[in-house]
Amino acid sequence: MDTPDYFQFFGLERKLALDTADLEDRFHKLSRQLHPDRYARATPAERERALEASAVLNDAYRTLRDPVARAEYVLKQQGTTPSKAAPPQELLDEVFELNMALEELRGGDDSVRPQLEAARDRFLALRREADAALENLFRAHDESGPDSVFADLRALLDRRKYIDNLIQQVESELSR
């Protein structure tokens, strides 16, 4: 079976700024419709189809409920994958500097703990900013069409990925 379009599967328009509460309702409704109990007396072929649809439903829900996974999904369908795009120079410079700052703190004694915590808070703030920027791009995408935002979206998702990575590193350092 070809994997259907996730938006179509939920009967949704191709909007990035989607209402997650509405998505959840649709998910529960479809889950009930596809529940194995309802297929107790169905033919094996029908049961098989319902099972496949359930698997798609779960993948589709996991993808669309998370803003980052949702945006990656839309970009992937458009043919832009993360590995193909070269990140902008300013981003690399910024990430390099943040990594340098983190490295200086790493492996130090307990006295650097407050600085590590400050670094973590800074990275978390950067991620919140990225998430807010993401919402703006979602709205722009839905209002002005996909072509206007794909490049910005790719760059922002890359930036967020780097920030995420830094947060993981600083948190693993703090939990040692």
């Binding site: 993360p82 990140p87 690399l92 990430v95 390099f96 990594n99 990925k161 780097y162």
Partner: peptide, 12 residues
């Protein structure tokens, strides 16, 4: 200066 966002690498 180059990088690969998917694994978080930066190389100078």
């Amino acid at each position: 200066m180059v990088g690969a966002p998917e694994c978080g690498d930066v190389m100078r």
